[in-house]
Amino acid sequence: MHAREAAARLPDGPESGSTAPAATSPAVPTIAVKGLTKTYRSKREGHVLALDDIDFTVQEGEFVCIVGPSGCGKSTLLKILAGIVPHSVGTVTVRGRPPSDAANRLGLVFQAPVLLPWRTVLQNTMLPAQVLGLDAKAAEARARDLLKMVGLEQFAGSYPGELSGGMQQRCSITRALLHDPSILLMDEPFGALDAMTRDTMNLELQRIWRESGKTIFLITHSIPEAVFLADRVLVMSPRPGRIVEEIKVDLPRPRDLDTMSEPAFAELVRHIRGLFGIGAKDRPHVD
């Protein structure tokens, strides 16, 4: 596993890994999805098949990205893993338990920061502590450390309305990390940011992941972002969402922005683009 020893650099959270003895044995994956199907009722279209027969696993400490076109059900998939939305058919386990199990408190990051405007940055970061009834003093110390890690320590007393979009999103990441969840679920976390902030955030996220040894499951519609961050990329088809291909990314770590100009990187991106039928002129022309 990467940098397990480096996890010590982050202050030990109140819910550190010990809660998941199953995850330490390599036989049980951290996330296991088998035959997952999700249908929902819509007023206009009746029964809609959102996700169709999805199979995949995520190992402990792995960084997995999902790419897919808009509306392919990838957000629904993430909500199912988070235990927010029930699934229709199939089995989904998170650390050997159903996702709705109270023990599965994961870190969730949305596309929007979803901060509470009446709370300061520090209070927003400490929200999980309040929900889970953790010791406030220890949580505050940890929150301050996390804010320092993302460069927001001077803004601990500011309100979200006073921060830029990128800063707000960083705050939402500290909130997701506060209770030291072993799994981080991220739904297009950098989708709303400008290209430069996005690059910075990608590097930041890679660093956080390497230092904390967490399992990260990230949704994106940016193919380069997926290839840059992931150990493995799952490619989803348009609705109904199916997993079309699983691509292992063997690029060496730590990756930096130069990685993006390497031929191996470009080849992976080109390959995934091809799966979506973009850039079809590279392929043999069929009439």
């Binding site: 909500k79 988070a82 235990g83 927010i84 709705s100 109270a102 599965n104 408190r105 994961l106 969730l108 949305f110 929007a112 979803v114 509470l116 929200l127 999980p128 929900v131 889970l132 209770h179 679920l185």
Partner: peptide, 10 residues
């Protein structure tokens, strides 16, 4: 989203 955030924390 705010309600879902709380749901993710159970």
């Amino acid at each position: 989203d705010r309600v879902e955030l709380m749901a993710s924390l159970k």
